[in-house]
C-alpha cells in the first residue's frame, strides 16, 4: 500500500476533555482539504465509539451524531486497536460504526502507510 494521507490517532475517552471532539474536527477538516484520512482509536479512545451516547445533560455535543456523518466526508476507514477493545471488555458490535480491528502486530504497518500521523 502506498504512503499517503493522514492518520489521526486518538487515545482519549470522550467528554472528559475536548480531545475526542478535536480529533473528529481535525479529521473533518482534513477531508474538506481533500486529504485522505484514517482514524485510529487506541486505549481509552475506543470509548469514543460507544453507541447510545447522550451528553445533553452535561451540555456537550453528541459525538455519535458527528461520527455518523463521517461517510459523507469520505472518511470510511476507522481502525480500532483490538487489544484496547478487549482490555475494556468491549467488542466491535458495541460500536456506533463498522470498524477495522487492528492487531498490535499490525500497528507499525498502519503508521507506515500514512504520510503523517497526528496524535490528538
Amino acid at each position: 500500500m502506498s504512503t499517503d494521507g493522514i492518520l489521526v490517532l486518538t487515545r482519549s475517552a470522550p467528554y472528559g476533555s475536548s480531545a475526542a471532539r478535536d480529533a473528529l474536527d481535525v479529521a473533518l477538516t482534513c477531508s474538506v482539504f481533500e486529504q485522505p484520512v484514517t482514524l485510529l482509536f487506541l486505549d481509552d479512545g475506543v470509548f469514543q465509539l460507544l453507541k447510545e451516547q447522550s451528553p445533553s445533560a452535561i451540555a456537550q455535543k453528541n459525538l455519535n451524531a458527528v461520527q455518523q456523518s463521517l461517510p459523507l466526508y469520505d472518511i470510511e476507514r476507522l481502525c480500532v486497536g483490538r487489544s484496547s477493545l478487549e482490555q475494556r471488555g468491549l467488542s466491535g458490535a458495541e460500536l456506533i460504526l463498522p470498524v477495522e480491528l487492528i492487531d498490535d502486530a499490525d500497528l507499525p504497518a498502519l503508521l507506515a502507510q500514512h504520510r503523517h500521523v497526528l496524535s490528538i
Partner: peptide
C-alpha cells in the same frame, strides 16, 4: 435534516454528497 441528524452544518463536500 442534516443538522438534526449530525448536529453540525456541513462543509461543501459533505453537502454535495448529501
Amino acid at each position: 435534516d442534516f443538522y438534526s441528524r449530525y448536529e453540525h452544518s456541513p462543509a461543501m463536500r459533505p453537502l454535495v454528497k448529501a
